[in-house]
Simulated scan of single mutants.
Amino acid sequence: MTALFIGLLAAFIIGFLANSYWIENIVHLALYAEKYIADFGIGGFNFLFDIFLGYGISLIVLKFLKKGFDIYILWVDGDADADPIILLTNFFRAMTLAIGFPVIYEVVAKIVENATTEVLNAIGLNIENSSLGMLNDLMTIGIAPIILYSIFTVVFIYLNIQFVVRGLEILVLRTGIPLAATGLMDADKGVFKTYIQKFIQEFFTVLIQVVLAKLGLALMRNWNMQDYTAYFGIAAMILAVKTPRFLQEFIIVSSGGGGMNGIYSTARMAQITRSLFRG
């Protein structure tokens, strides 16, 4: 009975840890989740980006017209004596970001991928070192060590799910950037400031989680059954899971109430404009 139990646990562990493809491509998955979703037959994300880009540009134009009207005609917002070039500069800044963000994102994503690779190479956590060398011996190592391997594997599976969630979060952020760019029309940058902080937190989370995951794999590989290496490996994997909460203590996403109010007022302006034309 014990041998059967060990065999089942060994098969469970090998099924998830023997394949290095997942951990090898995890950074790319987090940064370009839509490419992997397309493999499941669900595409069209480029059209989705175009749709939000169109709405974002429309909101930026409407907000520009509304702010100009409120400041220089109604005198109910801002300083009527302010140089109009400031408003015009903010308008072009918002338009440039909304239109050029795909190019900017490609550059930033490449930097994140290269930084992750360099960090892994610097501490010797390449793909070969991250694979478990003891997988073939799982049937003979005993019940206690294989239970530790099972705990590690469960945390590893949960971390993989977190990577998928991270990829979907970044995908949502990328889709909504043209709308968030309307915040650049405000003096305090509105919701855009919070948006960029969230992007930075996501990028750092991906980098740290990948490094910790590979560190945990390498530690488990080097476990000789007579030390505490396995505990360090499990601890590294648990810390990888807790990375988002850990980073929140240092990268605090501030509230963007002003920016959300700006987007709401711009959307309201769009509704009023449509009703006027219909009338």
Rank of each mutant, 00 (worst) to 15 (best):
168 L>N: 09
239 L>R: 04
113 E>I: 14
262 G>K: 04
239 L>V: 15
266 T>Y: 06
89 T>A: 15
185 M>K: 11
171 L>I: 12
41 G>V: 11
182 T>P: 09
101 F>K: 02
109 A>V: 05
44 G>A: 01
118 E>G: 01
48 L>Q: 09
161 I>A: 12
219 L>H: 00
163 F>V: 01
155 V>M: 09
23 I>N: 07
225 M>G: 02
184 L>W: 08
10 A>L: 05
25 N>Q: 12
185 M>E: 10
168 L>Q: 07
66 K>E: 08
212 L>S: 02
9 L>R: 05
46 N>L: 06
193 K>D: 10
214 K>T: 04
153 T>S: 02
116 T>C: 11
165 V>P: 00
20 S>L: 06
197 Q>P: 00
198 K>E: 13
96 T>Q: 06
56 G>D: 01
34 E>W: 08
181 A>R: 06
260 M>Q: 12
250 F>I: 12
21 Y>M: 12
2 T>W: 07
177 I>A: 11
18 A>V: 11
25 N>L: 04
145 P>D: 04
1 M>P: 11
244 P>V: 15
41 G>K: 07
231 Y>D: 03
241 V>T: 14
257 G>E: 00
130 S>T: 15
229 T>W: 01
124 G>E: 07
27 V>G: 00
232 F>S: 04
44 G>E: 02
228 Y>N: 09
197 Q>E: 06
190 G>W: 01
272 I>E: 13
37 I>D: 01
